[in-house]
Amino acid sequence: MNSLIQNALRTPPRGAYACARSLTTTARQQAEYVNPRLSGQSNPEGRIERPKPIPTSPNFYTTRALFYDQLTQLERAVGRSEAFLRHHHLLPLPDFARASLPPLQPVWKDPLEMSNEFKTKLSTPRYRKVVKILNQLNDFQRIAKTGGCPQLEDRLRAILSMYESSKKEALLSRGKRKPVVLDEYGRSYTLGKRKTSSARVWMIPVQQPDASQSETPEALLLGTEKQNLPVTTTTILVNNMPLNQFFPLPADRERITRPLKVAGALGKYNVFALVRGGGTTGQSGALLQGIAKGIVAHDPALETMFRRVKLTRRDPRMVERKKTGLAKARKRYSWVKR
């Protein structure tokens, strides 16, 4: 059945144009054809035709010589490496072994990049064809790597690296959280969001006044002198204003200091933040997340705890959309009899 459909698809279209074409060819075939170049004669106008250069590639007349050359090479590589692996009894692989192969995530050049490479516009089927072969080669590379064929692995890698996208790193790291890096002064820079607000938060540890100088070692050893630890305080500046000026509501203020309380880090860090967008609740919520992330950046041991109490979590709740036929998201118009 399938083969029938395929045959049907392969048959050339028959119609008026096809008939006309067959007619012209038959008319030409009646005169005997003589290649003027081989005969060395001049054409009827008396001009001697120069011999055409022999095409460098057998694919010259496909008009996509470069593409088909590469394709042939890749296919050849597939054939050879398959034969090699078969010879070494690494192919065919049982399913369990195939599943246990270490992953080797490839990111191939996109159609546009490959078009530039091949100097021809790649249609989707042609691109798919290349990618299919590349994926196969990638699988062979995985097998070679695990199966202990370093030579084959090196060769395959050399071939495949030509088709790897230049943006591989960026694409693979997409969607993954970037680790916060402290800068030269020990500052963290984190971002917090809630509703439509966002907060950029910079945190720096408070400099501890040196307490050890005032205490004599004897007193420390004997424990006679009560150790008077210096107390430091946290200053939080929001848009360059003290916290109490920016947030008049106590609930907002308490929300902001919550991560510090949970971490027991009140007085340990100074905070500078820029908040944009939204209202007071959103802005204070954004600050909470930003500060929580900053604390985790300074003290990675707290990461699990902060994740469990959902301090570092981006609150996903947003304004519920308005619906047609309703006054607001949920509110209904009052019912009127007529």
């Binding site: 916290l243 008049p248 203020r253 902001i256 200091t257």
Partner: peptide, 21 residues
């Protein structure tokens, strides 16, 4: 903790420390 929290929240302002803290 309450003291440090309220002091931080009020930014050291006396009235806020008492009335809103």
């Amino acid at each position: 903790e309450a003291f440090m929290g309220k002091y931080t929240e009020s930014g050291g302002n006396a009235r806020d420390f008492v009335w809103k803290g």
